[in-house]
Nucleic acid binder design. Structure first.
Lengths: 142, 142
DNA sequence: CATACGACCTACAGCGACTGTAGGTTCAAG
DNA sequence: CTTGAACCTACAGTCGCTGTAGGTCGTATG
């Protein structure tokens, strides 16, 4: 039986984060000692490892919830699992594309500035005037 | 004199976002009509354009505040402006590297799964077992 | 067996950067 | 003068945690 602190260490999670996952129903309510402290077993350890690893791969908690639900029906087709993963991949690809476009602009901006004074700084000029950009770089994140 | 809605349209910002920027002191408190509605001039239009464009390039509101402060002292050296932009570039590069590593894992994971049933799904297996990953992909974001 | 102290408990506020809602007021066109 | 779109304030919600305050529990040591 593991305390929440031990579970946290084993999975590289903060204690508060585990309690947060319990609060939003992503982790089950565990057993308690007589004094009211949480005690976990291997099932919970595995579940939390799954969650953390999925988070590291960028899956949202919503997507993770879906994956956990799916993995509870081992006889079903795994097409839905595939769809979730594909969607995540596409999102990662979109973000990479956006960031690469940003990198281009930032590099160009920095490279062009050889001024001494703020008044002549190309970086600030570019930021002032969107026209000077090559791409439209809609949103930075998402 | 522009209403907040017109300013919003011109800069591709939501009205609430402009009010939010005012609230956190990034935009100045504008003049008002007798009825209490905000009215903006070209100075505010330029400032908001600067903010929005910087946001699109991924600068945080904190960094933007710094850049706006710097651009108010036109005689100063622009080394600090450069430093802010360089920092942003480095952050973008780190994020790209992370996302590219994620893309590798996601593609591999998806490519390996040719199962029909959830029970044999490679995607879920990989998510369960971190060992199966090549990189350490620490944090998804940041 | 008593004590100390680190780990645990709950409840709630805060982060960044917005976005949305409710309920009321103002402006400008017809 | 009326209508209705646009404006106003104030506050709650988003996501995924993280931090704090103030109190309780469990266990190793003396």
């Amino acid at each position: 039986m593991l305390s929440i602190g031990t579970l946290a260490k084993r999975t590289g999670t903060k204690v508060q984060t585990i309690r947060y996952y319990e609060q939003i129903g992503l982790m089950p309510e565990p057993g308690r000692t007589d004094g009211g402290q949480r005690r976990y077993g291997d099932v919970e350890l595995d579940r939390l490892s799954f969650i953390r690893h999925s988070r590291q791969l960028g899956f949202s908690l919503g997507a993770i919830r879906e994956l956990l639900d799916l993995s509870d029906s081992p006889e079903r087709s795994c097409a839905q699992v595939d769809a979730v993963a594909q969607k995540q991949l596409r999102e990662v690809e979109v973000r990479i594309a956006r960031l690469v476009a940003l990198r281009v602009e930032l590099r160009r901006m920095i490279g062009e500035c050889s001024a001494d004074r703020v008044a002549d700084c190309r970086i600030l000029e570019v930021l002032r005037d969107h026209q000077e950009c090559l791409s439209d770089h809609g949103q930075a994140d998402a």
